[in-house]
Protein backbone atom coordinates (compact mmCIF):
# COMPACT_ATOMS: atom_id res chain seq x y z
CA UNK A 1 0.00 0.00 0.00
CA UNK A 2 1.22 3.51 -0.79
CA UNK A 3 0.42 6.13 1.82
CA UNK A 4 0.47 9.92 1.59
CA UNK A 5 1.24 11.53 4.94
CA UNK A 6 0.29 15.12 5.70
CA UNK A 7 3.33 17.03 6.91
CA UNK A 8 2.30 19.40 9.67
CA UNK A 9 4.61 22.41 9.68
CA UNK A 10 4.68 26.11 10.47
CA UNK A 11 6.30 27.17 7.21
CA UNK A 12 9.76 26.73 8.68
CA UNK A 13 10.01 23.36 10.38
CA UNK A 14 8.29 19.98 10.47
CA UNK A 15 6.09 19.59 13.56
CA UNK A 16 6.48 16.54 15.78
CA UNK A 17 2.90 15.41 15.13
CA UNK A 18 4.06 14.43 11.63
CA UNK A 19 6.45 11.85 13.07
CA UNK A 20 3.65 9.97 14.80
CA UNK A 21 1.61 9.92 11.59
CA UNK A 22 4.64 8.52 9.75
CA UNK A 23 4.83 5.66 12.26
CA UNK A 24 1.14 4.89 11.74
CA UNK A 25 1.49 5.06 7.94
CA UNK A 26 4.54 2.78 7.98
CA UNK A 27 2.34 0.05 9.44
CA UNK A 28 0.25 0.22 6.24
CA UNK A 29 3.01 0.34 3.64
CA UNK A 30 5.22 2.73 1.72
CA UNK A 31 5.44 6.21 3.24
CA UNK A 32 5.21 9.23 0.95
CA UNK A 33 4.83 12.72 2.33
CA UNK A 34 3.03 15.84 1.24
CA UNK A 35 4.43 19.25 2.09
CA UNK A 36 1.98 21.97 1.09
CA UNK A 37 2.74 25.60 1.74
CA UNK A 38 4.55 28.63 0.42
CA UNK A 39 8.33 28.82 0.45
CA UNK A 40 8.63 25.39 1.98
CA UNK A 41 11.86 24.06 0.44
CA UNK A 42 13.39 23.98 3.91
CA UNK A 43 10.46 22.00 5.30
CA UNK A 44 10.66 19.57 2.38
CA UNK A 45 14.38 19.02 2.93
CA UNK A 46 13.73 18.34 6.61
CA UNK A 47 10.85 16.00 5.77
CA UNK A 48 12.97 14.01 3.29
CA UNK A 49 15.32 12.80 6.03
CA UNK A 50 12.60 11.46 8.32
CA UNK A 51 13.41 7.79 8.77
CA UNK A 52 11.58 5.49 6.37
CA UNK A 53 10.31 8.13 3.98
CA UNK A 54 10.18 7.47 0.24
CA UNK A 55 9.02 10.36 -1.86
CA UNK A 56 8.23 13.88 -0.61
CA UNK A 57 5.67 15.69 -2.75
CA UNK A 58 6.04 19.43 -2.47
CA UNK A 59 3.24 21.79 -3.45
CA UNK A 60 4.59 25.30 -3.16
CA UNK A 61 2.04 28.00 -3.85
CA UNK A 62 0.51 31.05 -2.18
CA UNK A 63 -2.83 29.21 -2.23
CA UNK A 64 -1.43 26.74 0.31
CA UNK A 65 0.31 29.27 2.55
CA UNK A 66 -2.25 29.03 5.34
CA UNK A 67 -3.42 25.48 4.83
CA UNK A 68 -6.92 26.51 3.76
CA UNK A 69 -8.96 23.31 3.32
CA UNK A 70 -10.76 24.68 0.26
CA UNK A 71 -7.42 24.89 -1.59
CA UNK A 72 -5.57 21.96 -0.08
CA UNK A 73 -8.29 19.30 -0.32
CA UNK A 74 -8.38 19.22 -4.16
CA UNK A 75 -4.56 18.92 -4.17
CA UNK A 76 -4.68 15.92 -1.84
CA UNK A 77 -7.62 14.36 -3.67
CA UNK A 78 -5.63 14.62 -6.92
CA UNK A 79 -2.58 12.94 -5.40
CA UNK A 80 -4.79 10.17 -4.07
CA UNK A 81 -5.13 8.88 -7.64
CA UNK A 82 -1.69 7.35 -7.10
CA UNK A 83 -1.85 6.64 -3.36
CA UNK A 84 -4.00 4.27 -1.31
CA UNK A 85 -4.20 6.06 2.02
CA UNK A 86 -4.12 9.66 3.21
CA UNK A 87 -2.75 9.71 6.73
CA UNK A 88 -2.72 12.89 8.80
CA UNK A 89 -1.95 13.69 12.43
CA UNK A 90 -5.11 14.85 14.26
CA UNK A 91 -4.06 18.51 14.42
CA UNK A 92 -6.61 21.27 13.89
CA UNK A 93 -5.13 21.89 10.42
CA UNK A 94 -5.53 18.27 9.34
CA UNK A 95 -8.89 17.79 11.07
CA UNK A 96 -10.08 20.68 8.93
CA UNK A 97 -8.72 19.24 5.68
CA UNK A 98 -9.02 15.44 5.87
CA UNK A 99 -12.84 15.07 5.95
CA UNK A 100 -13.09 17.39 2.94
CA UNK A 101 -10.66 15.12 1.12
CA UNK A 102 -12.71 12.09 2.17
CA UNK A 103 -15.87 13.68 0.76
CA UNK A 104 -14.14 14.44 -2.55
CA UNK A 105 -13.03 10.80 -2.74
CA UNK A 106 -16.40 9.49 -1.55
CA UNK A 107 -14.90 7.58 1.35
CA UNK A 108 -15.63 7.53 5.06
CA UNK A 109 -12.77 8.89 7.15
CA UNK A 110 -11.56 6.97 10.18
CA UNK A 111 -10.84 9.64 12.78
CA UNK A 112 -8.22 9.61 15.50
CA UNK A 113 -6.89 6.08 15.13
CA UNK A 114 -5.14 4.53 18.12
CA UNK A 115 -3.77 1.46 16.35
CA UNK A 116 -3.53 -0.24 12.98
CA UNK A 117 -5.00 -3.73 13.26
CA UNK A 118 -4.75 -4.61 9.59
CA UNK A 119 -4.88 -3.00 6.15
CA UNK A 120 -8.55 -2.09 6.65
CA UNK A 121 -8.98 -2.28 10.41
CA UNK A 122 -8.25 0.27 13.14
CA UNK A 123 -9.09 1.08 16.74
CA UNK A 124 -10.34 4.52 17.71
CA UNK A 125 -11.75 6.19 20.82
CA UNK A 126 -15.45 7.05 21.03
CA UNK A 127 -17.49 8.69 23.80
CA UNK A 128 -14.58 10.81 25.03
CA UNK A 129 -12.38 7.74 25.19
CA UNK A 130 -14.77 5.88 27.47
CA UNK A 131 -14.96 3.19 24.83
CA UNK A 132 -12.54 1.93 22.20
CA UNK A 133 -14.08 0.77 18.93
CA UNK A 134 -12.49 -1.49 16.34
CA UNK A 135 -13.67 -0.46 12.89
CA UNK A 136 -13.21 -2.10 9.53
CA UNK A 137 -13.60 -0.10 6.37
CA UNK A 138 -14.97 -1.27 3.04
CA UNK A 139 -13.67 1.79 1.16
CA UNK A 140 -10.98 1.26 -1.46
CA UNK A 141 -9.03 4.38 -0.46
CA UNK A 142 -8.33 5.22 3.16
CA UNK A 143 -8.50 8.60 4.86
CA UNK A 144 -7.17 8.43 8.40
CA UNK A 145 -6.35 10.87 11.14
CA UNK A 146 -3.96 9.68 13.80
CA UNK A 147 -4.03 10.25 17.54
CA UNK A 148 -0.41 11.30 17.91
CA UNK A 149 -0.09 10.20 21.55
CA UNK A 150 -0.85 6.62 20.51
CA UNK A 151 2.10 6.22 18.12
CA UNK A 152 5.83 6.56 18.76
CA UNK A 153 7.57 9.27 16.83
CA UNK A 154 9.53 8.17 13.77
CA UNK A 155 13.15 9.25 13.90
CA UNK A 156 13.44 12.74 12.33
CA UNK A 157 16.73 11.77 10.69
CA UNK A 158 18.27 8.89 8.81
CA UNK A 159 15.88 8.87 5.87
CA UNK A 160 16.76 9.38 2.23
CA UNK A 161 13.53 10.50 0.62
CA UNK A 162 13.47 12.16 -2.79
CA UNK A 163 11.80 15.52 -3.23
CA UNK A 164 9.40 16.02 -6.12
CA UNK A 165 7.46 19.16 -6.99
CA UNK A 166 3.77 18.82 -7.74
CA UNK A 167 1.66 21.27 -9.70
CA UNK A 168 -0.60 23.61 -7.79
CA UNK A 169 -4.35 23.15 -8.03
CA UNK A 170 -4.65 26.88 -7.44
CA UNK A 171 -6.91 29.04 -5.34
CA UNK A 172 -10.48 27.74 -5.16
CA UNK A 173 -11.68 31.30 -4.63
CA UNK A 174 -13.91 30.32 -1.71
CA UNK A 175 -11.94 31.57 1.26
CA UNK A 176 -9.00 33.65 2.31
CA UNK A 177 -6.81 33.96 5.37
CA UNK A 178 -7.60 37.14 7.29
CA UNK A 179 -5.26 36.94 10.25
CA UNK A 180 -4.15 34.97 13.25
CA UNK A 181 -3.31 35.41 16.89
CA UNK A 182 -0.78 32.72 17.47
CA UNK A 183 0.60 32.65 20.98
CA UNK A 184 4.34 33.04 21.34
CA UNK A 185 5.54 30.09 23.31
CA UNK A 186 8.04 30.62 26.09
CA UNK A 187 7.45 27.09 27.29
CA UNK A 188 7.36 23.67 25.66
CA UNK A 189 4.38 22.95 23.43
CA UNK A 190 1.55 21.12 25.20
CA UNK A 191 1.41 18.20 22.82
CA UNK A 192 5.14 17.49 22.97
CA UNK A 193 5.94 18.44 26.59
CA UNK A 194 7.33 15.83 29.00
CA UNK A 195 5.70 17.55 31.96
CA UNK A 196 2.44 19.50 32.03
CA UNK A 197 1.05 21.62 34.84
CA UNK A 198 -2.67 22.26 34.31
CA UNK A 199 -4.98 24.56 36.22
CA UNK A 200 -8.75 24.54 36.55
CA UNK A 201 -11.60 26.74 37.62
CA UNK A 202 -10.20 26.86 41.15
CA UNK A 203 -7.46 29.21 39.93
CA UNK A 204 -10.09 31.96 39.79
CA UNK A 205 -8.14 34.43 37.63
CA UNK A 206 -5.46 34.81 34.98
CA UNK A 207 -3.43 36.57 37.66
CA UNK A 208 -3.39 33.40 39.73
CA UNK A 209 -2.34 31.36 36.69
CA UNK A 210 0.63 33.72 36.36
CA UNK A 211 1.62 33.77 40.02
CA UNK A 212 0.90 30.13 40.92
CA UNK A 213 0.83 27.82 37.88
CA UNK A 214 3.52 29.42 35.71
CA UNK A 215 6.31 29.55 38.35
CA UNK A 216 5.70 25.88 39.13
CA UNK A 217 5.76 25.05 35.42
CA UNK A 218 9.00 26.98 35.03
CA UNK A 219 10.63 25.06 37.87
CA UNK A 220 9.70 21.79 36.17
CA UNK A 221 10.39 22.91 32.60
CA UNK A 222 6.73 22.12 31.99
CA UNK A 223 4.06 23.24 29.55
CA UNK A 224 0.92 24.88 30.93
CA UNK A 225 -2.52 23.43 30.28
CA UNK A 226 -6.01 24.12 31.54
CA UNK A 227 -9.52 22.77 31.89
CA UNK A 228 -12.34 24.07 29.76
CA UNK A 229 -13.73 25.95 32.75
CA UNK A 230 -10.49 27.92 33.09
CA UNK A 231 -10.44 28.70 29.37
CA UNK A 232 -14.11 29.69 29.24
CA UNK A 233 -13.58 32.03 32.18
CA UNK A 234 -10.77 33.69 30.24
CA UNK A 235 -7.93 32.82 32.63
CA UNK A 236 -5.89 31.39 29.75
CA UNK A 237 -6.24 31.25 25.91
CA UNK A 238 -8.19 28.53 24.11
CA UNK A 239 -5.09 26.67 22.96
CA UNK A 240 -4.39 25.66 26.59
CA UNK A 241 -7.50 23.46 26.78
CA UNK A 242 -6.85 19.79 27.41
CA UNK A 243 -9.68 17.33 26.81
CA UNK A 244 -12.15 15.59 24.55
CA UNK A 245 -12.58 18.69 22.49
CA UNK A 246 -9.24 20.34 23.20
CA UNK A 247 -5.73 18.93 23.04
CA UNK A 248 -4.94 15.30 23.67
CA UNK A 249 -1.77 14.96 25.70
CA UNK A 250 0.21 12.10 27.20
CA UNK A 251 3.25 13.50 28.98
CA UNK A 252 5.49 11.66 31.44
CA UNK A 253 3.93 13.66 34.26
CA UNK A 254 0.62 15.55 34.27
CA UNK A 255 -0.13 17.69 37.29
CA UNK A 256 -3.81 18.70 37.62
CA UNK A 257 -4.35 21.55 40.03
CA UNK A 258 -7.87 22.58 41.05
CA UNK A 259 -9.39 20.44 38.30
CA UNK A 260 -12.32 18.20 39.21
CA UNK A 261 -11.71 15.54 36.56
CA UNK A 262 -14.83 15.62 34.37
CA UNK A 263 -14.84 12.85 31.75
CA UNK A 264 -14.30 15.46 29.04
CA UNK A 265 -11.09 16.56 30.74
CA UNK A 266 -9.91 13.02 31.49
CA UNK A 267 -10.37 12.19 27.80
CA UNK A 268 -7.45 14.47 27.01
CA UNK A 269 -4.94 13.41 29.64
CA UNK A 270 -5.67 9.98 31.06
CA UNK A 271 -2.97 8.33 28.98
CA UNK A 272 -0.31 10.39 30.75
CA UNK A 273 2.32 8.15 32.32
CA UNK A 274 2.00 9.58 35.83
CA UNK A 275 -0.91 11.75 36.94
CA UNK A 276 -0.63 13.96 39.98
CA UNK A 277 -3.68 15.75 41.38
CA UNK A 278 -3.94 18.56 43.86
CA UNK A 279 -7.50 19.23 44.96
CA UNK A 280 -9.16 20.27 48.18
CA UNK A 281 -12.04 17.82 47.66
CA UNK A 282 -10.88 14.31 48.51
CA UNK A 283 -13.79 12.87 46.54
CA UNK A 284 -12.97 14.76 43.32
CA UNK A 285 -13.10 12.31 40.37
CA UNK A 286 -9.57 13.31 39.35
CA UNK A 287 -8.28 11.18 42.25
CA UNK A 288 -9.74 8.08 40.56
CA UNK A 289 -7.15 8.38 37.80
CA UNK A 290 -4.34 10.04 39.78
CA UNK A 291 -1.26 8.01 40.67
CA UNK A 292 -0.32 10.54 43.31
CA UNK A 293 -2.87 12.73 45.06
CA UNK A 294 -2.53 15.55 47.55
CA UNK A 295 -5.69 16.77 49.23
CA UNK A 296 -5.60 20.39 50.25
CA UNK A 297 -5.84 24.05 49.34
CA UNK A 298 -3.87 24.83 46.20
CA UNK A 299 -3.27 28.38 47.41
CA UNK A 300 -1.17 26.94 50.25
CA UNK A 301 0.24 23.89 48.47
CA UNK A 302 1.38 25.34 45.16
CA UNK A 303 3.59 28.17 46.53
CA UNK A 304 5.15 25.79 49.02
CA UNK A 305 5.77 23.20 46.30
CA UNK A 306 7.34 25.72 43.94
CA UNK A 307 9.50 26.92 46.80
CA UNK A 308 10.75 23.47 47.74
CA UNK A 309 11.63 22.38 44.23
Amino acid sequence: MKTLVWVEHDGKAVKDATLSAVTAAAKLGEVHLLVAGQGVDGVAAEAAVIAGVGKVHVADDAAYAHGLAENVAPLVAGLMATHDAFVAPATTTAKNIAPRVAALLDVMQVSDILSVEGADSFTRPIYAGNAIATVKTSDKKLVLTVRTTAFDKASPTGGTGSVEKVASTGDAGLSSFAGAEIAKLERPELTSAKVIVSGGRALQSSENFKTLIEPLADKLGAAVGASRAAVDAGYVPNDYQVGQTGKIVAPEVYIAIGISGAIQHLAGMKDSKTIIAINKDEDAPIFQVADIGLVGDLYKIVPELTDKL
Binding site: M108, T134, K136, S138, E282, V289, G293
Partner: peptide, 23 residues
Protein backbone atom coordinates in the same frame (compact mmCIF):
# COMPACT_ATOMS: atom_id res chain seq x y z
CA UNK B 1 -22.25 2.55 6.25
CA UNK B 2 -18.74 2.12 4.92
CA UNK B 3 -17.35 1.23 8.31
CA UNK B 4 -18.27 -1.85 10.32
CA UNK B 5 -17.79 -1.64 14.05
CA UNK B 6 -16.46 -5.09 14.88
CA UNK B 7 -15.88 -4.63 18.59
CA UNK B 8 -16.28 -2.04 21.34
CA UNK B 9 -14.39 -2.40 24.60
CA UNK B 10 -13.66 -0.40 27.70
CA UNK B 11 -10.28 1.31 27.72
CA UNK B 12 -7.67 -0.09 30.10
CA UNK B 13 -8.32 1.14 33.61
CA UNK B 14 -5.69 2.99 35.58
CA UNK B 15 -4.83 1.28 38.81
CA UNK B 16 -5.54 3.12 42.04
CA UNK B 17 -2.87 5.56 43.14
CA UNK B 18 -1.64 6.77 46.48
CA UNK B 19 -2.36 9.90 48.49
CA UNK B 20 0.58 11.75 49.90
CA UNK B 21 0.28 13.59 53.22
CA UNK B 22 2.10 16.80 52.49
CA UNK B 23 4.22 18.82 50.10
Amino acid sequence: PRLTVTNVVEPPRRSAGVKVADV
